[in-house]
Amino acid sequence: MDILGTIIHGLNLAAIYGLMAIGISILWSSVGMINMAHGATFAVSGYAAWIVAGAAKPLIAAAFGKTLMAKLAMAGVTVGAGTLAGALFGAIIYLLAFLPIHDKPNFAVRSLIVTLAINLATVQILLWFFGPRQRGLPKLFGFGKFEILGVPIRYDQAGAILSTAIILGLVLFWLRVSRKGLEIRAMMQNPEGAVLSGISVRWTALPVTMLTGALAGLAAILLSQTIFVSPTAGALPLIKGLTIALLGGLGSVPGAVAGAVVIGFLEATVGALPFLGQRYVLFAQFLFIITVLIIRPRGLGGLLDETRE
């Protein structure tokens, strides 16, 4: 077994799952909504990126030819389209699942059901328009590998790990320094207190849903370097993201990061072990999470008292 290769693979998975899990976690802690349509956001962004990349390919080829510039432009267009589509889909979720019912009784359960319905409908619409065929996105980071300390790293792995780290750092920095970030953090700490000090729930929830949607879109682009885009591609990342968010303790961003790293490495290790293999990955993950939840009922980073009521 190649230990270092497994570590790199684990980091790669952790980066992508972390993007999903942190989106779910932030949304839950600031708005109080479990977003089951996160998987739909994932699939929609993948398709949007695929369409835009297909449309832009001849244009870019005409403008730059086969230079490095063309590659950069292609990457920029793909990532931009995916992220933008994710943010827009987040806004749709905001309009359907948050705005009409956020002040009505039973909001947590009802928004969960609405987002579930959005997920079901979106997957069906995608199946209808694009069919079940899988589509490949252009390779952002190109093919090939390089070596660090004798460990071969594929370009897409390195790209995913680095860009996730940069984007997450930027998001957390923005949450820390900006006015809107302050409002979002206030909502995460104490929603009622935030409202009492004049923070609008509606105008804070919109950027949160768009931000988490954009994160899901980014995760879709990065994961599509390894797997393909298909209507049901969002289901597995959704389940993984949700379980990681729960494992980390819903609402805790450091917990979600820790959970993503643990699950990513677990997946890489189980997949690499000769007697277990890829088929037992989900099995092992769920067993691990169940064990952790039985020992720590509110996850790794969750507080033991009621964090959000």
Partner: peptide
């Protein structure tokens, strides 16, 4: 379309 219909009913009823 069936699943779409079910999802739409679910959406309307919950909203």
């Amino acid at each position: 379309l069936r699943i779409l219909l079910i999802a739409a009913i679910m959406l309307v009823v919950t909203l």
